[in-house]
Nucleic acid binder design. Structure first.
Ligand code: FES
Ligand code: FES
Lengths: 141, 141
DNA sequence: AGATACTTGACTATTTTAGTCGGGTTTATA
DNA sequence: TATAAACCCGACTAAAATAGTCAAGTATCT
């Protein structure tokens, strides 16, 4: 089970944004430099974050992005959902009564994977951007 | 975050094995048929499980595999470790003081990913094969 | 006008996954 | 003792996913 860079970067970038969000929009260029994430890749990521209304964009010189919600209202779940980083413990569709391999009954371990998925998602439901910013409150960069 | 088939199959197959483990060794062919997993792939998986002493093999006709430990002594953690299904929330090395992108300080979200990794591993540490067999005790197949 | 910065879509190299394949060796049993 | 069932082992590969890159815009401030 690996967390992808896309998901990791999205959270990293938003924490960075949240910390410098005070008055002015934050440019992706700045985030890119501070966090060492490719600018082009960040653009892809923020395009998705904007579409899900997690951030707002400000175009033109001195532009950038600003948060569209309070930091305590943005959970990891929301971020991951926005960038299509989803927890998948099984191949088969949730709704379908069938199992992965086409049998009519779900596999022996099906409950287990559901539990696991819930377990992980609980973590994401509880953590907010606010928590993450606080964790770094005494950090300079 | 996706669980790979290899990890899922390993657990599935061991639950199957544990249920039919009573007296005789269980052949991979049987597991393959019951669980709908490719025989060749199962062989790879069981080779690893044997090397980590989770199962024992019995060669020749009527051969197969048997569990090498009590079901309550086999945790998901042990299984996943054996087949190299590991939880990885970061790219960077644990020991190294450096961050992923080569900077000298760990990234803003580093603690978070450590927490996440622990959260998931806790789940794997607690679940044993015994638990999984019990979950299916009233099932016929 | 020029620079900065967001916007969009297509493209691609690399890595990982999920197997497959071919050739063994061992052992029970007919 | 021949045969078949089963484990054993290493190499190979097609497909998918990942982690970007690249090109060509558009909007806005100074
Ligand atoms: S994982 Fe698909 S049937 Fe259980
Ligand atoms: S994830 Fe590598 S430095 Fe934090």
């Amino acid at each position: 089970m690996k967390l992808t860079s896309k998901g990791r970067y999205a959270v990293m970038a938003l924490v960075d944004l949240a910390r410098f969000n005070n008055i002015n929009p934050v440019s992706l260029r700045d985030i890119s430099l501070r966090q060492g994430i490719s600018l082009d890749y960040l653009e892809q990521i923020f395009s998705k974050l904007r579409k899900k209304e997690i951030v707002q964009s400000v175009r033109g010189t001195q532009g950038g992005y600003i948060l569209n919600k309070k930091t305590n209202e943005i959970k990891l779940t929301n971020i991951f959902e926005a960038v299509d980083e989803k927890v998948k413990t099984v191949q088969c569709k949730k709704e379908s009564k069938k199992s992965c391999n086409g049998k009519t009954v779900k596999c022996l371990t099906h409950n287990l994977w559901d539990e696991l998925e819930n377990h992980i998602n609980n973590f994401f439901d509880e953590k907010s951007l606010e928590d993450l910013v606080k964790d770094n409150s005494e950090r300079r960069i």
